[in-house]
Nucleic acid binder design. Structure first.
Lengths: 132, 132
DNA sequence: ATTAGCTGTTACCTAAAGGTTAGCGACTAA
DNA sequence: TTAGTCGCTAACCTTTAGGTAACAGCTAAT
């Protein structure tokens, strides 16, 4: 059970680093967690700027939830709502520069999601592919 | 409103790509979403392999939730539970190779989380730093 | 005149996630 | 003997995310 002082010190730093990292993912998940926010960001980034467009693109989201997510995301500085007072009134949602800081996160998550789906598919087809 | 055929084709591919991406993040969030899973993975990766250790490291998690998360993560192939039948019985959780595929995701998320926390802190101190 | 699209809001409800408290069985240390 | 650690589990409860349905005011098309 004995540890030298150097080892103890190393452990302590390791532990602290660990807590910082855990805190950081906690913050990140708090801000962009949930089922929809990242999907909405992807959709807007891909040129879907209008409410109904988003509703169609983000499969399964309801108007109520889309509306409340957009509001929250605007409040938190991820998107801006632009109202063109032309005719008819045109409402568009756009990403702020801040939401572009999420690019790496989105990229990592989509990449992982793609290979994860592939893995699940492979497992299913090898396990239950041709049942007796 | 007119679009050439080439433009329409480009739009269609863009749209499809968008749906694939949205589907992928959806899958990813389904598998590793929620408040705790990534935190637990970080903690285990940092050498916290035992139940009580994890409970202490992942601040705020309850025994009930930790237990059920560990079970689910074992089921989904992210961790393994090792029982050493020595004395006393020693139970350790370890990451599988598969959970290491999450490294990029974890890295991106922690990096973003760190700068996000910094941003929030800056906003607070400049907005409410020295009220009259 | 009716229908449909656009951009939401409101009220209501369900399901899932997660928190709280308590305790068990086996052990150890004071 | 008492108190504490470890690795949970059960029962119960609260909170929150999210779904459903209806409707609103406006315009455009049939």
């Amino acid at each position: 059970m004995k540890e030298g002082k150097a080892t103890q010190q190393a452990n302590k730093e390791f532990t602290e680093e660990c807590e910082v990292l855990i805190g950081a993912v906690g913050d990140a998940l708090y801000a962009i967690g949930g089922k929809w926010k990242l999907m909405i960001i992807i959709a807007i980034a891909r040129g879907n700027n209008r409410f109904t467009e988003l509703q169609r693109r983000v499969k399964g989201i309801s108007a109520r939830v889309l509306s409340s997510e957009l509001k929250e995301m605007e409040l938190n500085g991820f998107i801006v709502k632009k109202v063109s007072v032309g005719y008819p009134v045109l409402i568009e949602y756009e990403l702020t520069p801040y939401s572009h800081t999420l690019e790496k996160v989105v990229a990592a998550l989509t990449e992982w999601g793609l290979q994860h789906r592939q893995k699940i598919k492979d497992e299913l087809s090898s396990a239950g592919g041709s049942p007796s």
